[in-house]
Structure formats: structure tokens, C-alpha cells
Amino acid sequence: MSQTISDLQTPPFVPPSAVDNADALPDLMSYRRIVVATDFANAPQSSKTAWSLLRYRRDDIVAVLDPELPFATAGDAFGHGGSIPIVRSFDEVATPDALFIGVSPAGGRLPRPLRSAIAASIREGIDVVAGLHDFLRDDDEFSLAAAASGSRLIDVRRNSERTTATGASFRPGCLRIHTVGHDCSVGKMVASAEIDLALRRRGVDSKFLATGQTGIMISGAGIPIDCVVSDFVNGAAERLVLEHDEHDVLVIEGQGSAVHPAYSGVTVGLLHGAAPDGLILCYEAGRQRMKGLEHIKIPPLEKFVSLYETLATFRNPCRVIGIAMNSRRLDSDAADIERERVSAELGLPVCDVCRDGADLLADAILSLRESVIR
């Protein structure tokens, strides 16, 4: 199934609190000759931002920059991007208009090997777009060089959110669907984007709402919810939904996991702020230990169904309506067996949106809409 960013593109959403403010997000969709820098660690599976950019913005990318990857093309290294070349130096690319940092390291720290690529881009007056917690604009070396060259340093996680949630009512005709996970980095963003695409292919007025750096970089809009001050997480999510509830369906990207000791706060805040009507539970088949905390075992999926429904329903009547399975560790036969097993155990539709498409989940959403929207 071929996907392009034109399917996801909508006018950029700029929060009212950011208008006329240095934190306002510029039009990320205006870039048409992007170089994506990865982690220089010979580990393409760790560069999930690069993977998603190659899947959803392939037509806007001219090269992947990584001197350590033993591949000639993005397709060989990441499974997406086809013949887009992997280059060893920024100098090998003719007339790029932006360098996108394609890594999502733990803690959002800037990998030191990427500094030289960023510095080279800035010297040439090329804009740099990053989704890290280490803000480029706070780096004296980068800021001084950018002031001299005219390069823009765009930190998509920088924000000015200062609104608490009010428990506002949303437009009755707007169905809110939210992806939640059994752990971090299990495919919530991809599931959200694919569900939105599947709905819009059917003519449904659907909108993907990004809440993380990768989603913002592929769609050009959203709120970096994991970089919002904790008191304002719920309010930021609530306002993001209110700003877009003219659509018939909102597919709201989830973050973290409600049981992860490090990230549960942002997960629950987002869940209560968005007040979804339906949930898609995302999980990775075969993963038994929490990301970054391997001494902690992940509970069974049925416990997550109960937990998320309980948490969500305190804010708005809600239930889990489908399962998005990440089967990257399985071959196709094993994935089929896993899908059938989980569906039978939970009594819910299950699919891997990358392998199978998202039509089963789109069906579940439309069925929910018929029962909820009157």
C-alpha cells in the first residue's frame, strides 16, 4: 500500500498561545528537498522518526545522511524510501532546503555525532528541524552560527502551553478515537496515521491529530504533549481537540503507557484531555518487558482493556473497539496465528496496519459512530 504525505497534509495548526511568539511552528510542509539525518549508529530500527518520514514524506526527501549505515538506499536500510540515497556527507546533496533530525533517542538528547551535520547545514543557511528535548535554539554554537547564516532552527517540541483543562464539551457530531499502548514505542503514531488514511479513503471527514514530534514532522501540525508542563497536559490535549472538532472523526495519537513508571503521567493526561469515545489498543507481539525498564514485566492485554476503559470513562463514556498489533518480530504465518489468538481472547478486531492495512479498525470506528453519534 503506497502512502504519501499529501494524504495526511492539512493546514498547519498554530496554537493561539503561540501566535506572534518565537515558539510558533512554521509551515513544515513547505520543505520539498529534505535531508534526514539518522543516528550514525548502524541501527535503523532505532530511528523511528526517519522511518516515518520515509513512509509518509517520501516525495519530499532527497537523501538520508548517515556515514555508518552499510546500505546504499533508504529502501534497503529502512524498508521505506525506495531508491532515496544514503549519503555520508551533507556535501553530497544538491540544494537541500532542510535537515530533519530523524532520531528519537531516550531522553530526547542530541546524539553527539549529529552535531557536525547540523553545523554543516547551518553554515549553508539550511533550516534544521528537530524533535528533541535538547533544543537547537538553546545551543550557543548553533544559535550564533544560525544568526550569521540565516538558517532557522526549528524545535518542534518547544511550546508555550499554559492552559489547564476545563472539562469542556465537544461538538456532538465529532467522534474522538484515541490510540493507547501496552508500552512505549509500539506504533501508536503509525496506527493513528493509517487509520486516518483508511477513513479518508472512504470519504469520511477524518483528521489525524499529532501529539509527538514524529507526528508533527510528518503532518506539519500538532502539540508535543510530552514536552508540556505537567499541569497543562490535559488542557493542551483538550484544546487541540476543540480546535479541530469541526471534523466528523478525530484520530488522536497516543503517547507512552498508563502503566509505564516513567511515562504514565503524559498518557493519562492526554487520555483525560482528549476525552475519547473509542480506543485502539496498540501492542507489540512478543514484547514482554517495558522499554527501558526491562526488569518490569508488561501485564496481559486484557488488563489493559479494563484499565484504559476505566480511566477513560471517568471523563467520557468510552471503550476499546480494536487492537493494532505491531508484528515486526514475526513472520507472516506467525503474525496470522497471533492475530487470530488475540482476537479470539479479547473478542475484538485485530490487525497490523502496516501488513494488513487499517480497514478492520476503520470498520470498528464507523460502527461505533453509528451507535454514538445521533
Results as ranks from 00 to 15, higher is better:
residue 113 P to Q: 10
residue 192 S to L: 08
residue 348 L to K: 10
residue 235 G to M: 06
residue 221 A to Y: 07
residue 149 S to A: 14
residue 310 T to Y: 13
residue 55 R to W: 04
residue 100 F to T: 03
residue 45 Q to P: 00
residue 316 N to R: 15
residue 218 I to M: 08
residue 56 Y to N: 14
residue 69 L to P: 00
residue 308 Y to C: 09
residue 58 R to E: 15
residue 281 L to D: 10
residue 269 G to A: 03
residue 58 R to Y: 06
residue 198 A to L: 01
residue 267 T to L: 06
residue 224 P to F: 07
residue 336 D to I: 08
residue 160 S to T: 14
residue 252 I to M: 13
residue 112 R to G: 00
residue 286 G to L: 12
residue 3 Q to K: 11
residue 79 G to Q: 04
residue 223 I to C: 03
residue 69 L to E: 01
residue 239 R to G: 04
residue 13 F to C: 05
residue 202 R to W: 12
residue 283 Y to Q: 05
residue 87 V to I: 13
residue 119 A to H: 01
residue 338 E to D: 12
residue 46 S to L: 13
residue 342 V to E: 02
residue 313 T to L: 03
residue 133 H to F: 11
residue 32 R to A: 12
residue 140 D to G: 01
residue 69 L to S: 01
residue 359 D to K: 02
residue 352 D to L: 03
residue 299 P to M: 09
residue 355 R to G: 10
residue 99 L to K: 06
residue 341 R to D: 08
residue 300 P to M: 15
residue 240 L to F: 11
residue 202 R to Y: 07
residue 36 V to D: 03
residue 54 L to V: 01
residue 261 P to N: 09
residue 170 F to Q: 10
residue 354 C to D: 14
residue 65 L to V: 06
residue 19 V to Y: 05
residue 370 E to M: 14
residue 46 S to G: 00
residue 12 P to G: 06
residue 338 E to H: 05
residue 148 A to W: 05
residue 359 D to R: 09
residue 177 I to M: 12
residue 208 F to N: 07
residue 122 I to Y: 04
residue 37 A to I: 01
residue 324 A to K: 01
residue 320 V to T: 15
residue 291 K to F: 03
residue 347 G to D: 09
residue 11 P to F: 11
residue 46 S to T: 10
residue 297 K to W: 09
residue 136 L to Q: 08
residue 113 P to H: 12
residue 60 D to V: 06
residue 170 F to K: 09
residue 23 D to R: 15
residue 212 G to W: 08
residue 298 I to Q: 01
residue 139 D to N: 15
residue 334 A to G: 04
residue 244 H to A: 10
residue 163 T to S: 10
residue 106 A to E: 15
residue 279 L to S: 05
residue 161 E to V: 10
residue 269 G to F: 02
residue 287 R to S: 01
residue 315 R to P: 04
residue 3 Q to Y: 14
residue 151 S to F: 05
residue 224 P to M: 07
residue 371 S to L: 11
residue 4 T to S: 15
residue 283 Y to S: 09
residue 251 V to A: 04
residue 89 S to N: 12
residue 78 F to R: 07
residue 345 E to L: 14
residue 328 R to E: 14
residue 366 L to D: 11
residue 210 A to Q: 06
residue 20 D to V: 02
residue 211 T to R: 10
residue 176 R to M: 06
residue 87 V to T: 07
residue 315 R to A: 14
residue 188 K to E: 12
residue 52 S to K: 06
residue 221 A to G: 12
residue 1 M to G: 11
residue 127 D to K: 02
residue 349 P to V: 13
residue 33 R to D: 02
residue 260 H to Y: 08
residue 3 Q to H: 14
residue 307 L to M: 15
residue 154 I to A: 08
residue 52 S to G: 15
residue 172 P to F: 09
residue 356 D to W: 07
residue 30 S to N: 08
residue 236 A to W: 06
residue 110 L to W: 05
residue 161 E to Y: 11
residue 197 L to E: 11
residue 147 A to D: 13
residue 34 I to K: 00
residue 63 A to E: 05
residue 152 R to A: 13
residue 101 I to C: 07
residue 217 M to V: 05
residue 350 V to F: 07
residue 213 Q to H: 10
residue 268 V to D: 03
residue 312 A to Q: 04
residue 295 H to T: 12
